[in-house]
């Protein structure tokens, strides 16, 4: 594509829209998560601020904005502030290649999924820096956990996506959506159930959500890598967590659930419905299961998910060779 002024304006508008989406998503998801947690636990959840507590998340973010930012003694000042920023901003880039609708892609690139997988690594870097720089033993333990967990789970995640990529024969996300049909039985979910399952498990681990929330394991490490963060530092980590959740949900919708295609009237609403169903699944299991232990977490990955995803990839390759 030519580098014209129009092109830059388009990207700029897209980035602004994505920032709005990320912040709006965080506000909505904080409310949805707290309300779902409340309902699962048979209590009303947020109730006082606004009708049915809908303004609670906004008021909470105001509180976080107004809070003092505390820096522990002997903390690494630069890295301490760099970490939350590093957690939040790379996620922006990752939304660029996602096809929200048939004509609603910020940046139509042939290597969209490569971009996403490459920049997703920044998230763990920020966790590591945050834990390391805050001069806190819990933080260091959480950071160490975050790194080994992220490295481990990226492999089955990529291998699961690779099976779909083999099938579609492209790295372009829009083309992967186009390769799927409108009806649920034409989605990749049906012909790649194992890959879908592996991806689902890995995405929970990759976004550090319960039952794989080891880096911030509350009952063990108080808050893990963000123990010492307060105010906006904490808010940025929080935003990044929800943005990451949204991203992996969009990728899941694109790869396995037919993206913007639906039984009636294709459009971006289908992408959002599907992505938010995946988000609800993540919230739902968080409030259901206890946390796994660290060695079990790695065992699940190296002993089960990795061989299974390799097997899945192998079978896919053979089937494609035989049929195609």
């Amino acid at each position: 594509m030519e580098l014209s002024l129009l092109y830059f304006v388009k990207i700029l508008v897209a980035v602004l829209a994505i920032i709005a989406l990320m912040v709006g998503n965080a506000i909505v998801m904080v409310y949805v998560e707290r309300k779902a947690a409340g309902f699962i636990q048979r209590r009303p959840g947020p109730y006082e601020v606004g009708p049915w507590g809908t303004l609670q998340a906004i008021v909470d973010s105001m509180k976080l904005l107004a809070k003092q930012i505390f820096v522990p003694a002997n903390a690494d000042y630069i890295l301490f502030f760099l970490a939350p920023i590093l957690a939040f901003f790379p996620v922006l880039l990752l939304f660029l290649p996602i096809p929200f609708g048939p004509y609603l892609t910020s940046w139509e690139t042939p290597d969209g999924i490569i971009l996403i997988l490459a920049f997703a690594g920044f998230g763990v870097l920020s966790n590591l820096l945050g834990g390391w720089a805050s001069n806190n033993k819990y933080g260091v333990l959480g950071a160490a956990r975050a790194v080994s967990q992220s490295i481990a789970y990226e492999i089955p995640l990529i291998l699961a996506l690779l099976a779909v990529i083999y099938q579609a024969g492209t790295l372009n996300l829009s083309e992967i959506v186009e390769a799927q049909g409108s009806w649920p039985w034409q989605w990749n979910l049906v012909c790649q159930p194992l890959a879908f399952f592996i991806y689902l498990v890995s995405l929970v681990a990759e976004t550090n959500r319960a039952p794989f929330d080891l880096p911030e394991a509350e009952s063990e490490l108080t808050a893990g890598f963000h123990t010492e963060y307060s105010g906006m530092g904490f808010a940025l980590f929080f935003l990044a967590e929800y943005a990451n959740m949204l991203l992996v949900s969009f990728v899941c919708a694109t790869f396995f659930l037919g993206g913007y295609k639906g039984p009636i009237l294709d459009g971006f609403w289908w992408t959002f419905i599907k992505a938010y169903l995946v988000m609800f699944f993540i919230v739902w299991i968080r409030w259901t299961f206890p946390r796994v232990r660290f060695d079990q977490l790695l065992n699940i990955n190296w002993k089960w998910l990795l061989p299974l995803s390799l097997l899945n990839l192998w079978v896919t390759a053979i089937v494609i060779k035989v049929i195609g």
């Binding site: 309902f39 699962i40 636990q41 048979r42 209590r43 009303p44 739902w284 299991i285 259901t288």
Partner: peptide
């Protein structure tokens, strides 16, 4: 067993609240 647990929580999600407001 995980599915059983998920079923229990989803049923509670849609059942009435227990707390007194």
């Amino acid at each position: 067993s995980l599915l059983v647990g998920m079923k229990i929580t989803i049923v509670f999600l849609f059942s009435p609240r227990k707390t007194v407001h």
